[in-house]
Simulated assay, not measured.
Amino acid sequence: MEHVITRSDGRDDGEDWTENYERLPGGAGISIILESTTKEGVGPRLHQHPYAETFIIRRGTATFTIGSGDAAHEVVGRAGQVLVVPAGTPHRFRTGQGGYEAVHVHANAEFITEWLE
């Protein structure tokens, strides 16, 4: 049987939708973050997960820092791209001018985050 999840704010569109979902029904085995902002320069501090995180970028840009220390490098993710950060890899991002909208797919039913800064 299928499962339908409706926005908690009651809107019936896909605009400005920011929400976290864990333990999705139907045995999905993933958790997701829906991120939508018009602000520049916002995002999480350096962290990592024991599973891969996939960023499906729908609008705008974000500058991702992948790795830490001497191994760190930056990647600019843009609308229409998918970025996959492997399990155990430190990462963070800052939204670009005009904001950012994306679906962050965590390859685990619950969020497990180790904050590194």
Rank of each mutant, 00 (worst) to 15 (best):
E2H: 15
H3Q: 06
H3R: 05
H3V: 05
I5M: 08
T6V: 15
T6S: 12
R7D: 08
S8I: 04
S8C: 09
D9G: 06
D9Q: 10
G10W: 01
R11N: 07
D12L: 07
D12M: 08
D13R: 09
G14L: 01
D16Y: 10
W17F: 12
T18F: 04
N20S: 06
E22N: 04
L24A: 05
G26N: 08
I30F: 15
I32R: 00
I33F: 15
L34R: 11
E35G: 14
S36W: 10
S36H: 13
K39A: 15
E40G: 12
G41Q: 11
G41R: 09
V42F: 08
V42T: 09
G43E: 03
P44K: 12
R45W: 07
R45P: 10
L46P: 07
L46C: 08
L46Y: 02
Q48N: 14
H49V: 00
P50N: 02
P50K: 02
A52S: 14
E53F: 14
E53I: 05
E53T: 02
I56F: 14
I57K: 00
I57Q: 06
R58C: 05
G60K: 09
G60S: 02
A62M: 00
T63Y: 03
G69E: 07
G69L: 07
G69C: 03
A71M: 06
A71C: 05
H73K: 03
E74N: 08
V75T: 04
V75K: 02
V76R: 04
V76G: 10
G80M: 10
Q81I: 12
L83A: 09
V84K: 10
A87L: 07
A87V: 09
G88E: 05
P90G: 14
P90F: 09
H91Y: 11
R92N: 09
R94L: 11
T95N: 00
T95S: 09
T95C: 08
G96T: 01
G96K: 00
G96Y: 04
Q97Y: 05
Y100N: 04
V103N: 02
H104R: 10
V105F: 07
V105S: 10
A107R: 00
A109I: 12
A109H: 07
E110I: 09
E110K: 04
F111Q: 09
I112Y: 14
E114V: 06
W115N: 14
L116K: 08
